[in-house]
Amino acid sequence: MLIFDQLHSGPITTSDASGLASYRFADGVGFPPSYVRFVTQLGWGKLCGLFLLYIPLGHHPDSWTIRSTIIRRHMDEFYEEMEHDPLFIEPDGYPGIEQSLVPFAMSENGEYLAWNVAHRAADNEFPIYVLMARMGGIRYGAPDLYAFVEKCTDAVAVKLMLGPGYSALPLTFEPLPLVS
């Protein structure tokens, strides 16, 4: 059983199916399979009581196509201003990683989740990285969204992934209405 099957949701806010199916990254391949499964099975909402995963929602302000672009612009401005200071890519980043990160989620505490699109795996997944609050560092998250959620619910793994101030997060999904 996949971890998403353990998440109970109510009525889901579905994605823009054509946007989900037709979008292609620079490598010519679409969204990672774990993200596609999440989007089609659960839709728009809050994961583990903390993360808003942006999904394709057409022209809605919380659509992945809009939020990812806005977050990416802020990332570019931040890293340019900081002149690629290595402090802001520690502990798990490397020089240039910020150019390969495509954001797809935000926590209520200010962290961003981003795919490293320069390293697609054989299973078509992108590794997930966590940009710490106020972009104060980059931590490796997980090889896919399934493993990310599992780590969120583990008391030790969540600290390594999100920082020492975190405790295990609940295995929950709360569908959210689309409010403009």
Rank of each mutant, 00 (worst) to 15 (best):
M1G: 15
I3Y: 07
D5Q: 09
S9Q: 11
G10N: 14
I12E: 12
I12W: 03
S15P: 11
D16I: 13
A17L: 15
S18N: 13
S18F: 14
L20C: 10
A21Q: 15
S22K: 14
S22F: 06
R24G: 05
R24F: 05
F25T: 04
A26R: 11
D27A: 01
D27E: 07
D27P: 08
G28M: 04
G28A: 04
V29R: 13
F31S: 08
F31H: 09
Y35V: 06
Y35K: 00
V36C: 06
T40E: 14
L42K: 02
G45T: 02
K46I: 10
L47C: 02
C48M: 08
F51T: 05
L52H: 10
I55L: 00
P56W: 05
P56S: 01
H59S: 11
H59T: 12
P61H: 03
P61T: 01
T65L: 09
T65D: 12
I66Q: 10
S68C: 09
I70Q: 11
R72L: 13
R73P: 00
H74L: 11
M75V: 09
M75W: 09
M75E: 12
E77T: 11
F78M: 08
Y79L: 06
E80N: 14
E81N: 15
E81L: 14
E83R: 15
F88G: 04
I89M: 02
E90H: 11
E90A: 15
P91G: 04
G93V: 09
G93I: 06
Y94T: 08
P95W: 08
I97F: 03
Q99M: 11
S100H: 13
S100I: 07
S100V: 06
L101E: 03
L101Y: 06
L101Q: 04
V102I: 14
P103F: 03
F104R: 07
F104H: 02
A105K: 03
M106E: 15
M106K: 15
E108G: 12
E108Q: 15
N109E: 15
Y112Q: 12
Y112G: 02
A114M: 05
V117D: 08
H119V: 13
D123Q: 06
D123G: 01
N124L: 15
F126M: 08
P127A: 09
I128G: 03
I128P: 00
V130T: 03
M132P: 09
M132F: 07
A133T: 12
R134W: 11
G136P: 08
I138Q: 04
R139Y: 05
A142Q: 04
P143R: 14
D144M: 08
Y146R: 07
F148G: 03
K151F: 13
K151V: 06
T153A: 14
D154S: 12
A155P: 15
A155L: 10
A155Y: 09
K159T: 14
M161W: 04
L162G: 01
L162Y: 04
G163I: 05
A168T: 07
A168C: 11
E174L: 13
E174H: 10
L176C: 08
V179C: 07
V179N: 10
S180C: 08
